[in-house]
Design a binder for these strands. Structure first.
Lengths: 152, 152
DNA sequence: TTTTCACCCATGTTATACCATAAATAGACT
DNA sequence: AGTCTATTTATGGTATAACATGGGTGAAAA
């Protein structure tokens, strides 16, 4: 089971390292690549993060577009070409490349934000703001949805 | 089977711990994460509570929206980013993080309110009030609904 | 040679696993 | 029916281990 929950804020040290929250690491335990994969969100000033397994599924999902179509080319460029692999060190930390840090405007504090099957990496202040707006939109639109699966 | 029934009121100690009602714990017995998951209701001053299994199904259900869409982003921000995992200690207690306590205006008494597949965590006084209003609305609208499944 | 990066060890803080007590419930035996 | 006992549940406190964070060292790359 892979389920990223909650929001954790950690510090970026001088070497550009940051601890990945222990609970996130636990979720990625069984995967082939011991680390995380991140790429620049094309809608928000944040880094989309996930395990290598979900990147694999994302790759398969892109096949719903015609091969060599413009849509397929654009999507793969934005996602796979842009993606960075960040391996854990012995203590569960990763080095975040400058390209990603700049896009998310991250200076010293780093917020790991759980989003279910994936997570995001934010500048904490920017996320705080985004979070409030999102909650407000959900409230205003009275968003609801049906839950799937067997009624366990 | 997971079915949360009735209302139980317990005390919050100085460390922010509270006993989860035994009958609720029983329902969560078989789940992979031994504890509860809670997030701020975006409609009411209460904490939405459930087991990790239901969160997992919630995550799968949210995938019915396009990935990276605004609707998906808002919902996951309000639910998964906000969620807190609260593990049982050896005696079936959990610590409730300050963020959640503030939202639900909980000081010392904590009401666990069964809602079928999920439950809520209330300030007992506020719940009493909300309960009366809810019952009144049901009376006025004479709400009815159809039951699903085999007639066990 | 210089720089970068992976790996290793040290430390303070905080959370959580553990232990002890008290209250309440249920059961058994008189 | 009443009382005693055993078991479950709730509550309070303490010690230990996990985690985040900082620094250092050697190997590989530029």
């Amino acid at each position: 089971m892979t389920l990223f929950l909650s929001t954790f804020t950690n510090k970026l040290d001088k070497k550009g390292r940051v601890s990945v929250p222990a609970s996130f690491r636990l979720m990625l335990g069984g995967q082939t690549f011991q680390g995380i994969v991140g790429f620049r969100s094309y809608k928000l000033p944040t880094i989309e993060g996930m395990g290598i397994d979900r990147m694999q599924r994302l790759s398969e999902s892109v096949d719903q577009f015609d091969v060599f179509s413009e849509a397929q080319d654009d999507l793969t460029a934005a996602i796979f070409a842009d993606a960075q692999m960040m391996a854990f060190d012995g203590d569960g930390r990763v080095v975040v490349p400058p390209l990603l840090l700049e896009h998310a405007k991250i200076k010293e504090a780093v917020a790991f934000v759980g989003r279910g099957a994936t997570f995001q990496i934010w500048n904490p202040a920017l996320f705080e703001q985004h979070q409030q707006e999102a909650r407000k939109r959900v409230q205003d639109t009275k968003a609801t949805f049906k839950i799937w699966g067997n009624h366990a």
